[in-house]
Every structure is written in structure tokens, then in C-alpha cells.
Design a protein around this nucleic acid. Structure first.
Length: 205
DNA sequence: AATAGCAACAACCGCCTATGG
DNA sequence: GCCATAGGCGGTTGTTGCTAT
């Protein structure tokens, strides 16, 4: 027997939300707060799936959302975080106040991917595309060794100062609690550091 | 002016995880 | 420990609006 559906699909609306539906959802959450998404639609008088309500609220109606274009600083932060975390959009969104995982995911797929390709970097690995076809074409041996040493990553991308305090930037990138051990994670971190090693070489400002 | 192509974004789907009985 | 359920997440699709031809 399969999994039961999250709601009675025959009695729910789908597709774009109307203004009336938005208003019902907003007023209900203002009055009762978030929580129990399954029972919310009925209580709020909405013919929607609970999941759909949650998504609509989180991605579009929440009052603390920052609408509008991404700034250059946000761009760079997303790229850095993606290099460390991969497609963990919710974790990335957690580091960008007012931005949602869905928004960042869309922005990544439509804009940043192309931006990285334009820089000659593979969007998934963040490695120079040339390195993928010929892994040691441009890296000096010392760079490879350095990249393999994960402890250098913090220095390379300025996460923290030598005394362990946070970096001088206002970006809190302490991700130490978010990264479960996985052998491939070392590869990911190493490739990210390779990117910054190369970036500093090509763009030493 | 018509329309084809593309980019951006909203929303859905299916799977995974956490939690409570 | 097992099972059912709700919530959460990432991948994918559908829709809309803009631009180029």
C-alpha cells in the first residue's frame, strides 16, 4: 500500500494563488501563527493543500522577506556557500536574511550558473572547467597540496583569524555544525579552496 | 504586429527525516 | 523497535513576461 496523499487532492485548488487566497492565509497566520499546516487550509477557509499553504507563506507572503534583486555581495556569498554546501538551499538561505531557499535556488539556476560558466568555472564543482578536462593543467603541485589540506580553507577564504575569532567581514560563515562527515566533503572543500587559490592568483587585488 | 525563443519565477511533486503513539 | 504522519527539502515543471527577429 502506498503512502497516503497529504491532502484530498480532489477538493483542492492548484496553480497560481489568488489575492483572496493570499489574504485569507495572511490573516489566518497573523491571528493564529504558523504551525499545523495540514489543518490550516480548512481552518482558514482555503481549498488548498497544507504544503501549498506553507510554501506560499514561506516563499512569498512572509513579512520579513526581502524582495528585489540580489546584490553583488549576495551573489558572491551564494557562490561561496554553494561551494561549501552544494545544493543545500535551505542552509544557504539561512545565511541570507530575507531570502528563501526557493528564491536562491531559482536565482542559482537562472543567473549564477551562467555567471560561473562565464568565469570559466564549473557550477557544480566550482573548479575551473579546464581543470575538469585536465585536472593538473594549471595547478602547481604546491596548490594541489595546499588544497588537499582542509585546514587551509579558513585562511584562504578568510573565515576566521588565527586566534579562532570570526573574520573581519560581517559575514558569519561559521559552518562547523552543518557539515556531517562524508568522504566526498573533503573533495568538495578541497575543490573550493582550489578555486580561491586560483582566483587569488588570477585576480591578486 | 505577430511570434518564436528565452529568462525569471511560482508552484508542484516525490522523497527523506523527525516525531509521537 | 515499528509504523503512521507531518513537515521540510531539492528537483522539476508550468506560466508569464520580455526581447529579438
Amino acid at each position: 500500500m502506498g503512502r497516503s496523499p497529504c491532502c484530498e487532492k480532489a477538493h483542492t485548488n492548484k496553480g497560481a494563488w489568488t489575492k483572496e487566497e493570499d489574504e485569507k492565509l495572511i490573516s489566518y497566520i497573523k491571528a493564529h501563527g504558523e504551525g499545523c499546516w495540514r489543518s490550516l487550509p480548512k481552518a482558514a477557509g482555503l481549498l488548498r493543500c497544507g504544503k501549498s499553504c506553507r510554501l506560499r507563506w514561506i516563499n512569498y507572503l512572509r513579512p520579513d522577506l526581502k524582495r528585489g534583486n540580489f546584490t553583488a555581495a549576495e551573489d558572491e556569498l551564494i557562490i561561496k556557500l554553494h561551494g561549501l554546501l552544494g545544493n543545500k538551499w535551505s542552509l544557504i538561505a539561512g545565511r541570507l536574511p530575507g531570502r528563501t531557499d526557493n528564491e536562491i535556488k531559482n536565482y542559482w539556476n537562472t543567473t549564477i550558473k551562467r555567471k560561473l560558466l562565464g568565469r570559466g568555472l564549473d557550477p557544480q564543482t566550482h573548479r575551473p572547467i579546464e581543470l575538469i578536462t585536465n585536472p593538473f593543467a594549471t595547478l602547481k603541485q604546491q596548490d594541489v597540496s595546499m588544497a588537499q589540506d582542509c585546514t587551509t580553507v579558513a585562511k584562504v577564504i578568510n573565515f576566521s583569524s588565527d586566534d579562532g575569532s570570526s573574520s573581519s567581514t560581517d559575514l558569519n560563515l561559521d559552518l562547523s555544525i552543518s557539515l556531517p562527515y562524508h568522504p566526498s566533503a573533503e573533495v568538495s572543500v578541497a575543490t573550493t579552496s582550489q578555486y580561491f587559490v586560483l582566483q587569488s592568483r588570477f585576480n591578486p587585488s
